[in-house]
Computed example of a mutant assay.
Amino acid sequence: MENLKNAYYNLEKTKIFSPISGVIAQKQVNLGQQVGAGQTLFTVVDLNKTWINANFKETQLRDIKLGNHVEIKSDLNGKTYSGVVTGISAGSGSAFALIPTQNATGNWIKIVQRVPVRIDFNQDSLNKNGVLPIGTTLTVKVNTNKTVDIPNHFIEQKSELYKIDENALHSLIEKIINSNSF
């Protein structure tokens, strides 16, 4: 009976569930392939909760704040979307770069830095104009005079996807015992 329980648990662990619905990208696994724990199989992209990382020059950040309304123009389809500023990075792109912006003598080179600003698409805008593929070119215009309330994106989510159904296991054991009894 212990072997049956182990086999049942191992079979349940072969099922892979996604916590979100979306489109599979960067698939790195094929049917029948054995995979190991921690191996990246693919990426699931939720196209209904998309955002932009717009890299503004540090001189452009003076008046940008959370909640600013944003007009987003797509080069792909020419349509105009709307969005809202929901985050400003804690550092410029070069602050987190592998190679620092200094020359061999240790002197810092003055280069205008770019700071990533997160802009979330308004869902109504996506529904009206259609979803954009990741990596497409966009032009953004931030209205620093107009702000809106930002929804809380960090809501705790719980999942029961990997919970093993003990009742199903006990039913299977009962069925096997009953079918093999005299």
Rank of each mutant, 00 (worst) to 15 (best):
W51M: 11
N167V: 13
F154G: 14
R114H: 11
S179K: 15
L161P: 00
S82T: 15
V70Y: 02
V148I: 10
N143D: 13
I64N: 07
N129C: 01
I134E: 09
D63E: 11
E12Q: 12
F121C: 04
T14W: 08
V29T: 09
F56L: 10
S82P: 05
K49T: 11
T50H: 03
S21H: 06
L161G: 00
I24S: 08
L66W: 08
D149R: 10
E58Q: 13
Q33I: 03
L138Q: 06
K65F: 11
N55W: 03
S171Y: 09
K27F: 01
N53E: 14
I109R: 00
F182V: 13
K146N: 12
Q28M: 14
I88W: 08
E12K: 11
I173N: 01
I20G: 00
L76A: 12
E156Q: 11
L138G: 09
L138H: 04
V140N: 07
V23N: 07
V29Q: 01
H170N: 15
F42H: 06
Y81W: 03
N152H: 02
S159C: 07
V85K: 05
T147P: 02
T86P: 00
I99C: 00
I88M: 08
I164C: 08
L61P: 01
I88F: 05
K73S: 14
V142H: 00
I119H: 04
N129Q: 02
K27D: 06
K65Y: 10
A95M: 13
V35H: 06
H69Q: 13
L161D: 11
I64M: 08
K110M: 12
N6W: 11
D124H: 05
K13H: 09
S125E: 07
S18I: 04
L161C: 04
P151I: 04
G93S: 12
S74M: 07
G87K: 04
L132V: 03
D63I: 00
I119L: 03
P19G: 08
A168T: 08
V140Y: 05
L76I: 03
N129L: 01
I119A: 06
Q34L: 15
R118Q: 14
N10A: 13
T86A: 10
Y9C: 06
I155H: 09
Y8D: 06
K158M: 12
L11E: 14
N145R: 12
K5Q: 13
I164P: 08
D149Q: 14
I20P: 01
Q60L: 07
A90E: 13
G22N: 03
E166Q: 15
F154Y: 15
S74C: 06
I72W: 02
K49Y: 10
G135R: 02
T105R: 14
V112H: 02
V112C: 00
I177W: 07
D124L: 08
Y9S: 11
L138M: 03
E174W: 12
